[in-house]
């Protein structure tokens, strides 16, 4: 026998899934919403998306090659996902240099400073977004009007912005009702906002694709949206004149984008279904609390980042149900 055989420990076969394929599926899931953003905001949306993707890939490559001195692994698709998500989270009229700063914050601070893919505690795209939101609050909250609205204005307001302003000024919900888009527009995405957050319907569509291809499980999105609906529902029932009905909370702002695409980020979300539900519920509750009582009209980015920080704790203390764990074994002294 001259042939050299390979010897390895079992198992000797592997499922055809790979990290790269998973990342690509996330990208596919985001394509409908991406196209819609181009349709709604025009060329600007494509510009923002391309700059964000290019900048994320470039920073990933440069940092891996020259700073960490490891083999660059930009083909694993994770930087691509970060780039698209970052673009989804900014307004379409954002200057190019701010996008690049955001990409640097996302990849550099959000990901590489922790050691790269798999080691980051926070969702990189959200780190980028929040960094920009705090550094450039004006640019980050000047929303371009949609091309469909036909109003001669340079900047529009998001539904959540309108609601927040009313809330802060003590204006009753019924008085601002005329300014707010109807739920159908929220669903279809005929509203102002960041690139990727406008069409709830297309986001849900991508989410269903990810569910079918097993990129995500139902636990996190359902927990986020469910808890947000529940909490905002309670407020609404207590005082419908002060607090708007839950439909607006669910369908507007980054709720769908956050719940389906960002909270479910594998690296920064917990491992077991039980902890995923706790994590998701935490995000939902925090989002509503920030929206109603915080300084910002939108709170899901902060909510996800806060819950990201709790993930190591959840992983440490919430264990999956183990086989054969019927009765507690006596604790070892």
């Amino acid at each position: 026998m001259s042939k050299i055989l390979t010897v390895s420990p079992s198992p000797h076969i592997h499922s055809s899934d790979s990290t790269r394929k998973i990342m690509l599926r996330v990208v596919y899931a985001m394509i409908p919403a991406m196209l819609w953003s181009v349709f709604v905001f025009g060329f600007d949306a494509a510009r923002v998306t391309l700059i964000a993707i290019a900048a994320c890939l470039a920073f990933e490559f440069l940092i891996q090659k020259y700073l960490l001195k490891v083999k660059p692994a930009i083909t694993d698709g994770s930087a691509l996902v970060t780039g698209i998500l970052l673009a989804f989270n900014v307004p379409a009229n954002l200057p190019w240099w701010i996008i690049i700063i955001g990409a640097f914050a996302a990849i550099g601070f959000g990901k590489m400073s922790f050691g790269g893919l798999g080691s980051n505690i926070f969702n990189p795209a959200l780190v980028g977004r929040v960094f920009l939101l705090i550094s450039f609050p004006v640019q980050m909250t000047s929303w371009p009007v949609t091309q469909q609205s036909g109003v001669d204005a340079v900047t529009g307001a998001t539904p959540l912005g309108i609601i927040k302003e009313a809330l802060n000024n003590g204006v009753a919900v019924s008085e601002i009702a005329s300014k707010l888009p109807v739920p159908k527009d929220l669903l279809l995405g005929n509203i102002g906002g960041s690139l990727g957050e406008i069409s709830a319907l297309l986001l849900i569509l991508g989410g269903i694709y990810m569910l079918i291809t097993k990129v995500i499980t139902w636990h996190i999105p359902v927990a986020v949206i469910g808890s947000a609906a529940l909490l905002s529902g309670i407020f609404w029932m207590v005082n419908p004149e002060l607090y708007i009905n839950p439909v607006y909370h669910i369908l507007s702002g980054g709720m769908m984008l956050g719940a389906i695409y960002m909270a479910t980020d594998m690296v920064s979300s917990p491992m077991t279904p039980k902890s995923q539900i706790i994590y998701g519920a935490g995000i939902g509750v925090l989002t509503i609390l920030i929206r109603l009582f915080g300084a910002y009209p939108e709170g899901i980015s902060f909510a996800i980042l806060i819950m990201n920080a709790l993930v190591p704790l959840l992983n440490r203390y919430i264990k999956p149900r183990r086989f054969g764990e019927v009765k507690k074994q006596p604790a070892k002294a």
Binding site: T6, S8, L117, T217, M266, S268, T272, R322
Partner: peptide, 26 residues
Amino acid sequence: SEAKRREYIECIRCGRCVSVCPMGLE
């Protein structure tokens, strides 16, 4: 072509190993 393992990369913490473990381990 079937014999060699693919090169391994960092854990992306997807939790699939946890969900497929028949003994409920991590």
